[in-house]
């Protein structure tokens, strides 16, 4: 009979197929959807479409950088994103009469305070982040409704602001450059600094990290503050691009951001994930949405596909993790 080929293969390589897939599956998936799009979908490969896709993912992508810290630190998720984004957008538009520096300063600072509250509630008081940020986003939403007379739209008056928001630099929208910068800085923080090491340690085993002298509460606190800060930046860019702001401007953003991070392979249990994989997750989600739009799929169908993808991604991750641990 023939030689058993399995014996010829090095054991570690064979054992780690699942692990490999878990770590790099997202890159395979991104390549696959892009190839599929280019081959089957009309207009997918055009420059205009490319530009539209990366602009649409950039607002989500900026926030996903912060959410990656929250998820890897084992703090589950931040559900207060719509409030932070809408708050920033509304402040940036409504306060333009006091001058752009005031408007942008307030739009950066005040939503970041939401992150400070999140960090205190979830990081220091150790309230479950799903409940904690759901509560803070509800409180924040109430404040926005008071400030906007029940959610009135507001339109920008500053030409400079609008020009900035629709500006292209080297052929790419300004928000895409901001996203790339956020990913580069985020990657550096996560992979090369003490804070990044603290984030992985805290998420991988909270008790062990604490017993090793890692300032676990502060680590989680900072992750929430970073996320809100980035949500505020994203909100300002959205306001500048559309020159209007509304209470519901970022409805559903929390889901899109969390999807991108989880599709990228970060685990809700904490301790695993990387900035590069989150970027791949952001691109994957954006391309899939784009293909659906190009095919003329109605919005309802898009929602159903997005929901399904996240279940598949998380279930696959759990399945591979369980297989690896056996």
């Amino acid at each position: 009979m023939s030689v058993d080929k399995r014996v010829m293969l090095p054991t570690p390589g064979r054992l780690s197929v699942g692990r490999q897939l878990r770590a790099n599956g997202i890159f395979v998936a991104v390549t696959a959807v892009i190839l599929a799009g280019a081959l089957v979908v009309p207009n997918f490969g055009t420059l205009d479409n490319f530009s539209a896709v990366i602009r649409s993912v950039s607002f989500i992508g900026i926030i996903a950088v912060g959410m990656t810290f929250v998820v890897i630190a084992g703090a589950m998720v931040d559900l207060s994103i719509p409030t932070a984004v809408a708050g920033a957008a509304i402040l940036a538009i409504r306060l333009q009469d006091y001058g752009l520096p005031v408007a942008i300063g307030a739009a950066l600072l005040i939503p970041t305070l939401l992150g400070v509250v999140n960090g205190f509630v979830c990081g220091v008081l150790r309230v479950n982040p799903v409940v904690g940020t759901l509560a803070t986003t509800t409180v924040g939403g109430g404040l926005i409704l008071i400030g906007t007379n029940g959610g009135e739209f507001s339109y920008g008056s500053s030409d400079a602001f609008y020009r900035f928001g629709t500006h292209y630099v080297f052929g790419l929208p300004i928000s895409v450059w901001v996203m790339l910068a956020a990913f580069i800085v985020g990657h550096w923080l996560l992979a090369h600094t003490r804070y990044g090491a603290y984030v992985y340690a805290t998420g991988s085993n909270y008790a062990a990290a604490r017993a090793s002298g890692v300032p676990v509460r502060l680590t989680v606190f900072i992750a929430f503050v970073l996320t809100s800060l980035l949500a505020a930046i994203s909100g300002i860019l959205i306001a500048a691009y559309s020159n209007l702001a509304a209470f519901k401007v970022a409805d559903g953003y929390e889901f899109e951001v969390i999807s991108a991070v989880l599709i990228g392979g970060a685990s809700l249990l904490g301790g695993t994930g990387s900035m590069i994989r989150t970027l791949a997750g952001v691109i994957f989600a954006g391309v899939v949405t784009n293909i659906l739009i190009l095919f003329g799929a109605p919005f309802e169908a898009q929602l159903m596909v997005k929901g399904t993808i996240i279940i598949v991604a998380v279930a696959l991750d759990i399945w591979l993790a369980r297989r690896n641990s056996e």
């Binding site: 090491a197 992985y200 340690a201 991988s204 085993n205 008790a207 062990a208 990290a209 017993a211 301790g271």
Partner: peptide, 12 residues
């Protein structure tokens, strides 16, 4: 429980 982060590497 408190000694190791088992998902992380030896060096971590």
């Amino acid at each position: 429980r408190e000694g190791l982060a088992r998902e992380l590497s030896l060096k971590a």
